[in-house]
Design a protein around this nucleic acid. Structure first.
Lengths: 219, 219
DNA sequence: CAACCAATCAACGAATCAGTTGAATATTAG
DNA sequence: CTAATATTCAACTGATTCGTTGATTGGTTG
């Protein structure tokens, strides 16, 4: 039986996929790529990596099938290969949170401690946003908002929130979201809004998870 | 803002989890561990690794939180940390199958080609087994069957199937399963049974996925 | 205690990986 | 065509990983 070869080859390939997400810099790159397609130099700047280094990591991701590269003029845009990649990252996140004390600790101190442990589940947001009971607030930078966002969401980038409070109806509850469950932009935004008397909560997941779940998306 | 530290530490930890499943031998070890707890020497024998090497890989898995070690007398039994680990492995499998041509090719030649592309979905098995319409057949070795199996399943190890056909009712359809979607034991069994006139199909997933999905398990 | 066995540890070489630097390629602008 | 810019490639260093070998620990048995 050549089943030994099968198993060997197969697990060799799957290990390639796993190793591709086995480096902190590649995980961070994927977080940004998951918001929409981006050229190499922007991704390098966002992650504070040298362009050559970022380029190499991106090619590693591409060879593992996690991202695609699309050439447009002089630049190369990288984009996520598909929603299954988001599911994979979520699975890693869940294992990390439930099995590694270090992760649980980090999440507790940086997120839970500031957010009063009451993230909003997705189905609730969907329902109440349709009824106009909440303002859905996207605090990511405008390029990412433009590449896709929750239906009806208002975009105010986290760093310009202070200057744009007028566009947020005072009475209604605000639900903020950003790049993912570990993105602190919405944590900061919620804290800021609460200080100013708003009733504000954080969506438990970010845009990529929303989209990967097949929920409606607006562009 | 010390959010840079947060992201760095967090992704460092998640990368640890990913790297733990980033080696073919560790993936194979996990396949066996997912069937139930096993001591180091048995796992080493099953994977044809040296005991020292297997021990080291198992410790890597333990440090990443994927497995637990339980000492019983003179031997150490390793067991899966939880169902979320099975979900993680499934996520890697799905990405590999949909994004890597090599994986799709391997699955096609070793499984689809021999199984006529008609795996049985889990809910169907659950329903029809309750009505007594199908014989559910567990072709894993008896120790693994003993550690947990589908409700009502009959256990005939794949290598002793030829000698135990009498315990399989001739008229009823057989649904065979084993260690997982990539375990060839049930593929062989289905082929063998079909040659002898049985109507036999393969369950699309194995025991670990069944259990991780929260479906009923018998011991 | 001594013998024995499972498991781990320590140390080593080969291989792979991560990041930098500087050169090479490709596409657009002038 | 030339210049400018985004990206990739090549070469190299230091760090990490994998597997083996032989020694060591820890628990059981006679």
């Amino acid at each position: 039986m050549s089943s030994g070869r099968f198993k060997q080859d197969l697990y060799g390939q799957l290990a390639r996929v796993a190793r591709a997400i086995g480096h902190p810099n590649r995980l961070e790159l994927l977080e940004y790529i998951a918001q929409g397609s981006r050229p190499v130099d922007e991704l390098a700047a966002m992650t504070r990596l040298s362009v050559a280094n970022a380029s190499k990591h991106l090619q590693d991701l591409r060879q593992a099938g996690l991202v695609r590269a699309r050439k447009e003029g002089v630049r190369v845009y990288y984009e996520l290969a598909g929603p299954d990649v988001v599911d994979l990252l979520s699975a890693v996140r869940i294992v990390g949170e439930t099995r590694l004390a270090e992760v649980e600790q980090l999440v507790r101190t940086y997120i839970d401690a500031r957010d009063d442990l009451e993230p909003v589940p997705v189905d609730e947001v969907l329902r109440r946003a349709r009824q106009g009971l909440v303002t859905v607030l996207d605090v990511r930078p405008p390029e990412e908002y433009a590449a896709g966002h929750l239906p009806g969401a208002v975009n105010i980038a986290a760093d310009s929130l202070a200057g744009h409070l007028k566009s947020l109806p005072r009475g209604r509850e605000v639900v903020a979201y950003c790049r993912g469950p570990y993105c602190l932009l919405s944590v900061d935004a919620v804290a800021f809004l609460r200080e100013r008397g708003y009733k504000a909560r954080r969506l438990e997941n970010g845009f990529p998870e929303w989209k990967a779940a097949g929920l409606p998306v607006e562009t």
